[in-house]
Amino acid sequence: MGAVLAKARADGRFRLSQEQIILIVVASLFVVFSVLLDGFFTADNLLNLLRSVSSLGILSVAMAVVVIARGMDLSLVASMGVSTAIAIQLMRSELSTPEALLIGLGIVLLLGAINGFLIAFVEIPALFATLASGLLIYGVARTLVLDGLIVELPPDRGFVRWLGQGVVFGIPAPIVIFAVVALVAHFLLSRTRTGRFIYAHGDNAGAAALTGIPVRPLTLIEYMIAGAIGFCGGLVMAGSVGGFNTQIIDGSLIYDVLLVVVVGGISLVGGRGGVLSVLAGTALIGVMLNGMTILNMNTHEKDIVKGLILLAALVLDNRLHPRDEETVRQGD
């Protein structure tokens, strides 16, 4: 028996994955906060915690799709914010809610296709292409399209308001929507040919192309999928507060999204991780932010904690998923 256990350890079968490590940390923090922080372990607080991280979780699922494919989308929050704000602004006209939502979805799909084209066909590195496109998108929208920084949702648009404030069998709608998005994304990535292609693309783009996978068109699809998922998150955010404040695009939300993805265990070298990784990362960041709020920590103190968590996650990712020669050659 001892020899069997030793062989199992040698084979790495007892090595914890990053997702499992993070879930253990979440469970430990949950117990500590429940004991030490007044008001943490209450039904209202836990429900508010889940509700508050639902939009972050949806956006993180969107980011996960492109990171698994060894990409990056720094324009995710900008494209989400612009498309959501335009859709809400159109709802203040004679257009129906479905028409306004379809236009918003069309905008975000177009922006995703542009990102994919710049990365796959013009061959601009994803980091710089999406950084530039995000700045351009927001600048053009603020200058030429949007009426102001805050776009208020008309009171008669009940569907969008329900997305953020509704209840399904006693469960807040944002939590349900996050769960549905996570399930659909999990099915896409694990049970479909497109999902297998995305993992193959992230693992080794050159090898994937040699096997016949259309890597360049697939890149467009990846960024369009990310944009569509992000648009769902934007609608949930808008419904929660009855409008959309475009100043969030200039905030730290994109860094929180990246924090969730990296902390959860989606490797930056591509081809690894999944929706479970997003759930683990969302749970950790949600519990941490809730605990820091109860402790009345200011923004700078929260940034210090988040920065330390991100650095620890990057070190852990590097240990669990060392760079291969292909990654080093590409300079990713």
Rank of each mutant, 00 (worst) to 15 (best):
K7H: 12
L16R: 13
Q20H: 13
I21N: 08
I22V: 15
I22A: 05
V31E: 02
S34F: 07
S55M: 07
S55V: 08
S55L: 05
S60R: 06
L74E: 04
A78K: 03
V82N: 00
T84G: 04
Q89D: 03
R92D: 11
R92H: 11
E99P: 08
E99Y: 12
A100E: 08
G104L: 06
I107Q: 01
N115K: 09
E123F: 05
E123V: 13
E123W: 03
A126N: 10
R142K: 13
V145A: 10
L153Y: 06
R161K: 13
R161Q: 13
V167G: 04
P172N: 14
P174M: 02
A182Y: 01
H186Q: 13
T194F: 10
R196A: 12
I198Q: 00
D203E: 11
P214V: 14
R216K: 15
T219R: 12
M224R: 03
I225M: 00
G230H: 03
G233A: 12
G234A: 08
L235A: 07
S240I: 09
S240P: 03
F244Y: 11
D250W: 07
Y255A: 09
V261K: 06
R272A: 09
G274N: 05
V275A: 01
T282D: 02
I285P: 00
M288I: 15
T293L: 02
E301H: 11
R323W: 07
R323I: 08
